[in-house]
Simulated scan of single mutants.
Amino acid sequence: QDPAYAATAPYPGYEGAAGATAVYPGYAPAADAEPRKKSRVGLWVTLSILGALLLIAAIVVVVAFTTARHWTKTDVPEKPETFHSEEYETGRYDVSMDAVNPCTVNQDWTDCTNLMVATYTAACVGVELTETATLLCTDYSGAIDEMKALDGDGYYVATLGTYGSLTRTPEMDTRQVSNDDYEPAVTHEAVCYLEFIGECE
């Protein structure tokens, strides 16, 4: 008795399973595709992290520059100017009187008067006097005027008065003179970022 179904010989590539097909070159099981998907996910995660870090860095840089504090830093302090004292002539004159009367006893009165006028002129005339010198010269001039008023023929000096000879000297004063040694401070403009980067006070 013949069987109900006749068997046929398997064709090349047949694996013995019903409906099986031959394995063609380059064929890969479906399970092998999963690692590729995981690899792409990891790449996107890495790129996202890098992007976030770059964004944060950019924000920090912008904030640092917009909030930067500029200030002047002193490298070498200022050297103040120094002074020294020196004497100088003010342009005015002092006048002093000694005890030596320009006249002599028994001298002609007019000659004595003329000697006092010469002394007065040499010391008191033609210059700017100090206050003290002005008072002394005014008093001396008054004494000369009195002698002229008392003059007469044959008059002579019987006794010497209290007026002596006059001497004129330049008035001296003291002033402070610069040593020309002032030196300005040496500075430069410093920048401080985020209160800790750069040159911060």
Score class of each variant (00 low, 15 high):
Pro25Arg: 13
Val157Gln: 11
Gly164Pro: 03
Thr119Ser: 13
His70Pro: 03
Leu166Asp: 05
Asp173Phe: 01
Thr8Met: 14
Ala68Trp: 14
Val177Gln: 00
Ser48Phe: 12
Glu86Gln: 05
Trp44Leu: 14
Thr134Leu: 11
Tyr120Pro: 03
Pro77Met: 00
Val62Trp: 15
Ala99Asp: 15
Ala149Thr: 03
Leu160Tyr: 09
Gly142Ile: 02
Ala143Ile: 00
Val62Thr: 04
Pro35Trp: 09
Val61Arg: 12
Met97Gly: 11
Trp109Phe: 14
Gly126Thr: 15
Ala7Met: 15
Ala68Met: 15
Arg40Gly: 11
Thr67Met: 05
Val45Asp: 15
Asp75Tyr: 01
Leu136Cys: 04
Ala33Lys: 07
Gly142Lys: 02
Val127Thr: 09
Val23Lys: 10
Thr8Asp: 09
Leu54His: 07
Asp2Ala: 08
Phe65Lys: 06
Ala185His: 04
Gly19Lys: 14
Glu195Ile: 07
Thr159Arg: 10
Met116Arg: 06
Val76Cys: 02
Glu34Cys: 11
Thr104Ala: 14
Thr113Lys: 05
Asn106Gln: 11
Pro102Met: 01
Ser96Arg: 10
Val191Trp: 07
Pro170Thr: 03
Asp2Trp: 08
Glu81Phe: 00
Val45Ile: 06
Gly126Met: 06
Asn106His: 09
Asp181Glu: 01
Lys73Tyr: 09
Ala99Trp: 08
Ala17Leu: 12
Ala64Ser: 09
Met172Asp: 05
Phe196Thr: 14
Glu86Pro: 06
Asp153Asn: 05
Thr8Cys: 04
Thr66Lys: 12
Thr187Ala: 00
Arg36Met: 13
Ile59Gln: 13
Pro80Met: 01
Phe196Ile: 13
Pro35Leu: 03
Cys192Gln: 04
Asp180Leu: 02
Ala123Glu: 07
Thr132Val: 11
Gly51Met: 06
Ala68Ile: 09
Asp108Cys: 15
Lys73Asn: 06
Lys37Asn: 04
Thr110Gln: 07
Pro102Glu: 07
Ala18Met: 12
Leu43Ala: 13
Leu150His: 14
Tyr24Glu: 12
Ile197Pro: 06
Pro170Leu: 00
